[in-house]
Amino acid sequence: MFEILKKQELAPSIFLMDIYAPRVATSANPGQFVIVRVHEHGERIPLTIADYNEEKGSVTIVTQTIGASTRQICALNEGERLLDFVGPLGVPSELVHMSDEELKKLNILFIGGGVGTAPVYPQVKYLNARGIKADVIIGAKSKHHLILQDQMKAAAGNLYVATDDGSVGFHGMVTGLLTDLVKNQGKKYDLIITIGPMIMMKFVSKLTQELGIKTIASLNTLMVDGTGMCGACRVTVGGKTKFTCVDGPEFDAHEINFDEAMRRQGMYRGIEAKKLEEYDHKCKIGRHE
């Protein structure tokens, strides 16, 4: 179980993996996530689902090496196994519950940033399968960091790219590109779904509030069990405390208290930096399994 069927480096330090997890593959819906554990002493790591294939029994995850735990995932190779892979967790995207007529009335835009582009893909693919073409903005540091462009192109309506250094597409942030599309190019959107770094989602949300476009954001908060038991993932949405793992991960972006969410996300930053240092040290002296 949980064998790595395929591993591919999408961009520097960003890896795609197909994991054999037939139960999850059968039940997964767009918008949901999984929790992964690499080894007996490891953390439970929440990751958004990037694709799933019921026939093959596989679920795709895309991971960027950020902390010690994500480095451990990315250090594994095809044929090796994850110790645990549980899901699908969280509530499926609202899109799943909408009728074709409702969906056809909407101009939908997805905004993915960095590794957050990966979980945008199953939603775009899902809509495409229902005959709906959604537009997509991908934001990345540079053209080297751009991921899933071809897959996205095949499933999306218009695909737009923004890079921080301008090496490809729009030179600037996704918010700059969105402003350009709406204000200068006459694009009209009724629904925006954004997944990426919390800070990006905060500014997308701020902009779309001004533009008056309904926006959904998918939150990547701290979690332990991922089933509602611990409450580590709580966020304030519309003035009320919600658990990201059971009430989310997608919420109305205009209702989310992003500043609080970002502060809570950094709660263990000091401890994590120390762990990463230890991990690097272990790797250098070759003691890590």
Partner: peptide, 29 residues
């Protein structure tokens, strides 16, 4: 209640018991 440093007892206990955060060689903080 959502300040950093406010936890449910379940979170503290799950980190300590299930994830063995009290042992130095386990990774959960």
């Amino acid at each position: 209640e959502n300040l950093n440093g406010v936890f449910s007892a379940n979170e503290l206990l799950t980190r300590a018991n299930l994830m063995k955060a009290f042992l130095p060689d386990y990774e959960t903080p």
